[in-house]
Design a protein around this nucleic acid. Structure first.
Lengths: 249, 249
DNA sequence: ATGAATTTGATTGTTTTTGATTGAAAATGA
DNA sequence: TCATTTTCAATCAAAAACAATCAAATTCAT
């Protein structure tokens, strides 16, 4: 692969995901770590991205949509921790569902070399899953452009064909009375169906999601375990209703 | 091979792939490395491409996503011409299927601002479709990493839910006796099912696909119209079996 | 046809790029 | 905090690509 092409791919990847790990770039391009490192140095020199420990991220100035961009980068390290722990729960031979969303996306890098089958409705996930040679099924249905998720009745029907050992689902709100909620009714329908078809059910949520309520409810607290990170809020109350794993490291 | 012809081929190759390796150009033209090197130097001198270590790439200015306006004017590649014509067949209100593959991919840019619904099994298509805000459904099923297509029984079942006004399908081989063929049986199965569910059926194929036979047959010649570009081969024989549109402009 | 001019392909030694290695630095986890 | 793991920067040898050169082949003009 020629240098300009490789660097172009790197830039695209950074633009698309806001942050990339060197390891993922190595997988994606097939080049060595040294080469990627040199590329990143050059690209930073040109002011096209920002080097960070373990990879690279977009420049602050260049992030066009402050709302969306910030949202997905802000709690990146916390999401990474949650994702890392979640991935450690996955065993060889598992068949799992990965919800669309940035936290579940972060899981993928930690799943490599596991002999598993992944089903997902997150279109952004597919690139990385391909890179890691993970056997992947995608739900069929309407493509939601904003969230890059597959939704709709078609997706629900596709889901009926599958049963999962474990599922990892994101949420926008966790609340004692109102359970798990998300803004989009169609995505909620998917999440609901996924939970119904899975033996073990995990909700991935950083601390900003607690005590929040969004429009569409997709499950009661008891119906899934919560994986979250450490924060001020005391989660003992929630622990009375379901298992809550607080990832500390 | 004559010098102007060779350099023309080089330019085409650069335009097509954005970057080319010298080795590939050597294989493609049958000339020696030295000659190619000299050609590249000259072409760079003229400002028609950019030399990079190991090959050449398009000029920075042109390497940005070419806007559709200029693309459709003169120097459109053969694939572009086919894609452009195919897109012109699409009318407001149509529901259509776009096969995975580069020619159908090229159609997408020409579909903007049409009020249509697109169904596809090509994962690479989704980004562009999203960009153009085209209402899109994706087939569900196994993700074929190499071709970035969705295949498998799941996809076939999903297909049963849809009926198309028009479908645009790629192929690897077109042959008088053996009909339309493609190397992968699973992708062939998809193509077959798509044709069955569509009112009007178009096969997109540049001239290299004629008189070729691949492993898996997915339809007889009569079952679809062919859209191709102009070339030496006389297609009258094929016209006895089905409609063949030869795109000239 | 003959000789000059041009183009081509092979060869040479040089430069650039690449990937692996190593010890230092940073992040992580207890 | 300290030990462990991960990432980093620097270095180096191998590989790939390069520019320069030259002889053979081709083309062209006379």
């Amino acid at each position: 692969m020629l240098t300009p092409e490789r660097q172009q791919r790197i830039l695209q990847s950074v633009k698309k995901h806001h942050t990339v790990k060197i390891k993922d770039l190595v997988d994606e391009t097939g080049s060595s770590e040294s080469t990627i490192r040199r590329d990143l140095d050059q690209l930073e020199e040109k002011g096209l991205l920002q080097r960070v420990h373990g990879g690279a991220s977009m420049l602050q100035a260049a992030s066009e949509e402050p709302s969306m961009g910030e949202k997905s980068t802000k709690n990146a390290s916390e999401k990474e921790k949650i994702a890392s722990y979640a991935a450690s729960l996955v065993k060889d031979g598992d068949c799992l569902f990965l919800d669309a969303g940035s936290t579940t996306y972060a899981m993928i890098s930690h799943l490599q070399q596991k002999d598993i089958i992944v089903v997902t409705n997150g279109l952004n996930h597919l690139d990385l899953l391909s890179d890691h040679q993970i056997k992947t099924y995608v739900l069929g249905g309407l493509v939601k452009h904003r969230t890059r998720a597959v939704v709709g009745t078609g997706a629900l029907q596709t889901l009926n064909q599958y049963r999962f050992d474990k599922c990892f689902v994101g949420t926008n709100g966790i609340h004692m009375e109102d359970g798990y909620t998300t803004p989009d009714p169609e995505e909620a329908a998917i999440k609901r169906a996924v939970l119904q078809h899975s033996r073990q059910r995990y909700i991935l949520a950083d601390h900003t999601k607690f005590e929040q309520v969004a429009f569409s409810k997709f499950a009661e607290l008891e119906e899934a375990e919560i994986i979250t990170n450490q924060h001020d809020l005391n989660v003992d109350l929630y622990k009375e209703k379901t298992i809550v794993k607080v990832v500390t490291t």
